[in-house]
Amino acid sequence: MSQTFRHPEILETARRQGKVTVEGLAEQFGVTLQTIRRDLTDLAEAGKLERVHGGAILPSGTTNILYEERRILNERAKADIARACARRIADGSSLFLNIGTSTEAVARELLHHRDLMVVTNNMNVANILMSNRDCQIILTGGALRRIDGGLVGTLTIGTVRQFKFDLAVIGCSALDQDGDLLDFDIQEVGVSQTVIAQSRRTFLVADSSKFKRSAPARIASLAELDVFFTDRPVRKSLQDDCEAWNTEILVTGQKPEAEC
C-alpha cells in the first residue's frame, strides 16, 4: 500500500483509537517500522498528528494531552531549553515556576543553584527541588489537579498575590502565530496571568511543538514577556514582532534554515 493510501487510514485509526503506535501500524500495513515512522513524521509536520513516544496522537484542540504523554514529548528539546533558561537564573533569586513538563525540566536544572526561593503551584516541581537543600520551596496551595500535580483556583491566586518575584518561569500548552500564549484550563490561565503581574521579569519555556497545537484560553502575549526560550527559529513575522516588543528569543540548537 502506498503512502497516499496509508495516510488517510492512519488518521482514521487515530480518530477511532485516540492513539496509533509504530508497531501496530507496521503490522496493520505490512511495512517496516522505519516506513511508519516516516509516515507519522510527515503527518506531524502537516499538523494532522502529534508525535509521542512509540507513535502519535491526534493534535489537541480543547483538551490537553495526558501528562505522561507530555512528559516524554520532545524530551531532549525541553532539556536543552531548560539548561539555557537556568543559565539566566541567578543565585539568590526569588522565582515562580508554574505547571508543566517544561518548567519541571527547568527545576531539574536548578538543583545546584544556591540561595533560591521558589514558589510553585506544581507539586512535581516541589518534589524535584527537594534535593536542593539550598532552595526554599513554597507551595501555593489550591485545588489539586490530579492529572499532573497542579494546584489551581482562587486560593492559588491569593497566595501568588502576596509575592513580588524577581522572575517567573512559565510554560504554555500552545503558542499562536500572533504570539499569544494559550492553555486549556481557565483556572490555570488565571494563575499564570497573576504570576506575570507579580513578577519583575517573565521567561517562557516552550518547545517548537507548541506552534503546531491549539488551545482555547488566552494567557498573555509574548509582548508581555522578557525572554522566550525555544528549540527552533520562529516565523519571520513573529520574530519582527518580538523585536518591536523588546522580547528576546533564545533558540537552542538553532538551525537557520528551519522555521516553526
Rank of each mutant, 00 (worst) to 15 (best):
G141F: 11
P216E: 05
A86S: 12
C85F: 00
A244F: 11
G253R: 02
R37I: 11
G100W: 02
G150K: 01
H112Q: 03
Q162A: 06
K236M: 11
E224F: 02
L182E: 00
H113F: 07
K255M: 12
E23D: 15
R83D: 09
G24C: 11
A86T: 08
V152S: 02
A46C: 10
Q28S: 11
F165H: 04
T194C: 07
R200M: 14
L58I: 04
G253K: 05
T63E: 14
R114Q: 14
E69C: 04
A244T: 07
A26W: 04
E45Q: 07
L238M: 08
V20Q: 09
L139Y: 10
C172I: 04
P216I: 04
I57W: 00
V20K: 04
M130K: 09
D80Q: 15
L129F: 01
F5R: 14
D185K: 01
T156C: 09
E27I: 12
Q239A: 06
T154Q: 07
L43E: 09
K210T: 03
L222I: 13
A56G: 13
T194G: 06
T4G: 06
R38C: 10
G149V: 09
I137W: 05
A217D: 13
S93P: 13
T35A: 08
G54V: 05
T21A: 10
A174P: 10
L11H: 08
S221F: 09
K212W: 07
D185C: 03
T194W: 11
P233S: 09
L116A: 08
K210Q: 01
A217P: 06
G55W: 00
G18P: 02
V119K: 05
Q3I: 14
G171E: 07
I81V: 00
